[in-house]
Design a protein around this nucleic acid. Structure first.
Length: 600
RNA sequence: GACCCCGUAGCUCAACCGGAUAGAGCAUCCGCCUUCUAAGCGGACGGUUGCAGGUUCGAGUCCUGCCGGGGUCGCCA
């Protein structure tokens, strides 16, 4: 099950070797000049440089050795030494049939599976998700799926922010807002004797009635602002934090309620976006590791005192820039966020021992991760090179600055999805689909279209660059958009349904028309696109492949009638091609976390 | 101030260890539905790849300087 490109690459490698040239130059790429060739190799030019020989002579020699290859219909040399290859119809047909018979549509698995942990989204207690979480969620989910599909053992961890000073702040804010909570905190210093599961449930139920996510979301920003201005208030919050960390019973109960309420709401929101985590390990889970870890760092002589704080120096003599140390314990004696990150690395080593950990986090945290990773390597908490920050740019508004609502606030993710869904519903209605679909199917289709619009718009861009958010453009059904891709998939499904009704069955694929050739060449390129996406942690390469596939299908669809094809063999062949395209397109979209509806 | 990223068509973005004529989508204009979903397809228009040097047979890609935008620079996460 090898793609044509690698098969040709091997042939060209062999030819280079026969000619006494280094086969590493024999890289075959998709042709830049589709009018001249399907594939090309520029290796003769590089060899010419090293050999101080003529590129076209070398190319001619190589070309001669390739002529007998059954995959090759034509090989010629152009310009200073480009080797142009055209693939034979039989090779294309053979490849298409192999793909049709492969449930992975040509995607190979990696040879040596690894254990990979993907850290993404990073939701926090008491905070509703906003647009800032969108990219991390979408990109992280896609990376996770791509890695898992490639054959790695993958865990996606939400890395729940459920610990620290913010928790104390929330406890104080809730106590001030509700006397019943204040007295609960006051009374329950430790677990009362005879305290049963039923008692606990009663308290939980009471808390549920008093505090919902909306309340937390409202209380937290106010409390944070107050703490900045009010020293006494800050001190109270600090004390509450310490009491929570010391295990005071009432504090633990209410904190656990915060986490539960938040998590339930978040899981629902994530799920609506097609984002699901394997793990919800919280910062609280690694808190017990911090004290022994600090002691160990001290023992290993990595921890030193500086300006009253405990730090680990991670700068190296060959650094081109100044790398600040990792601040492990502040001068006030508290753990910093880098400390938690380091403890999390240690935790992960213990329970999973990953070969690779990918942090799908905002690009702006690059320096922070560099420092934490260096400290982790020094401490032996991760395999060398196993930690990697997969950074991404910001989602900007029309003004080029990070996205804000018209009022200048942060847009909640749920509101964003609602907006997108309303827009999709409107578009569907304009097309008169409201009458054909049942209300349930209409709603689910609108949601699918909305999610596809948002996700595809994000994933089509390379993650590292920032992009401009424009809902109108994203939800358009024309052009490089999620809805366009869904539309093509839906057309394929409709065609297959109709074929089944007419008792037309898919058969052996034969490649004749130019549109069929182009489509098969693209189907062949799936494996390479996935490989590149995997290596570069770049889902946009999968998105781009999906778009080109959909587009190529649309051309095929316009140029090559399927059910009205002249003979039975052609009908069967084209139907097979359509079925294969749908399979690969759905696989690709699935990796991006986009599901296709049956009709739209 | 130091360091990092970015600057490509009117707009949003691509461009596979340096390769041929820098590609898509949108917008604009012109064609194509009695035929499988026209939410489609075909075509046209559109570029001194921020500026100036350098390396190379060849540079959007590598090097140097400059201009412009964004970001980061130990006790918040």
């Amino acid at each position: 099950m090898t793609d044509l490109r690698s098969r040709l690459g091997e042939a060209v490698s062999a030819a280079f070797e026969e000619a006494g040239l280094d086969p590493k130059w024999a890289r075959v790429t998709v042709s830049d000049r589709p009018d001249l060739a399907d594939f090309q190799c520029n290796g003769a030019l590089i060899a010419a440089k090293a050999r101080k020989a003529s590129g076209s002579d070398i190319a001619a020699d190589i070309a001669e050795r390739l002529r007998a290859n059954p995959c090759v219909a034509a090989v010629d040399v152009a310009g200073p030494g480009f080797i142009n290859l055209r693939v034979s119809e039989s090779a294309l047909g053979g490849r298409a049939n192999a793909l049709a018979g492969d449930e992975r549509a040509g995607a190979r698995k990696i040879v040596q599976p690894r254990k990979v942990l993907i850290d993404y989204a990073g939701p926090n207690v008491a905070k509703e998700m906003h647009v800032g979480h969108l990219r991390a969620s979408i990109i992280g989910e896609a990376v996770k799926r791509i890695y898992r599909f490639a054959g790695d053992e993958v865990l996606g961890d939400a890395h729940f922010g459920d610990w620290g000073f913010q928790m104390g702040l929330l406890i104080v804010a809730c106590a001030d807002a509700d006397p019943a909570i204040a007295s609960l905190l006051e009374d329950l210093v430790a677990e009362p004797p005879g305290f049963t599961a039923a008692d606990e449930q009663a308290i939980d139920a009471d808390l549920s009635a008093r505090i919902a996510l909306d309340d937390l979301d409202r209380l937290y920003p106010a409390a944070a602002a107050k703490a900045k201005a009010d020293d006494d208030y800050r001190e109270r919050a600090r004390r509450a934090t310490a009491e929570l960390q010391a295990g005071r019973f009432g504090h633990r109960l209410i904190w656990r309620h915060f986490a539960q309420v938040t998590r339930a709401a978040l899981e629902r929101d994530f799920h609506a976006l097609g984002v699901d985590f394997d793990l919800w390990r919280g910062e609280s889970d690694v808190d017990p590791l911090i004290e022994p870890m600090v002691a160990e760092l001290r023992e290993k002589k990595l921890l030193i005192e500086d300006q009253g704080a405990q730090i680990v120096r991670v700068a190296r003599s060959d650094d081109r820039r100044e790398i600040p140390p990792l601040l492990v314990v502040s001068s006030e004696g508290s753990a910093m966020y880098g400390t938690t990150d380091l403890a999390t690395i240690l935790d992960r080593q213990r329970f999973f021992n990953p070969d690779l950990v990918l942090y799908v986090v905002d690009q702006r945290q690059a320096d922070h991760f560099e420092i934490v990773f260096r400290a982790a390597y020094l401490a032996g908490y991760a395999k060398p090179g196993a930690l990697e920050h997969v950074g991404f740019g910001t989602m900007n508004g029309a003004d080029g600055k990070p996205f804000k609502t018209r009022e200048g606030g942060v847009l909640k993710l749920r509101d964003l999805i609602d907006m997108a869904r309303e827009k999709a519903a409107m578009r569907l209605q304009e097309a008169g689909l409201g009458v054909e679909l049942s209300p349930e199917e209409f709603e689910s289709t609108a949601l699918a279209v909305a999610v596809a619009a948002l996700k595809f718009a994000d994933l089509i861009n390379f993650r590292g660059t920032s992009y401009v958010f424009d809902l109108d453009r994203f939800s358009s059904f024309e052009g490089k958009t999620g809805p366009y891709l869904l539309y093509q998939a839906v057309r394929m499904k409709s065609l297959l349904r109709k074929a089944a009704a007419e008792r037309v069955t898919a058969g052996r694929i034969a490649v004749r028309e130019p549109a069929e050739r182009d489509l098969v060449l693209l189907l062949d390129a799936f494996d390479h696109a996935l490989g590149e996406a995997y290596d570069k942690r770049a889902p946009n390469l999968v998105a781009d492949h999906a778009f080109r596939l959909a587009q190529s299908f649309a051309r095929f669809y316009a140029a090559c009638p399927v059910l009205a094809a002249p003979d039975e063999a052609t009908r069967a062949s084209r139907l097979g091609l359509a079925a294969l395209t749908l399979k690969q397109l759905e696989l690709a979209l699935g990796l991006l976390g986009i599901t296709t509806p049956e009709r739209m």
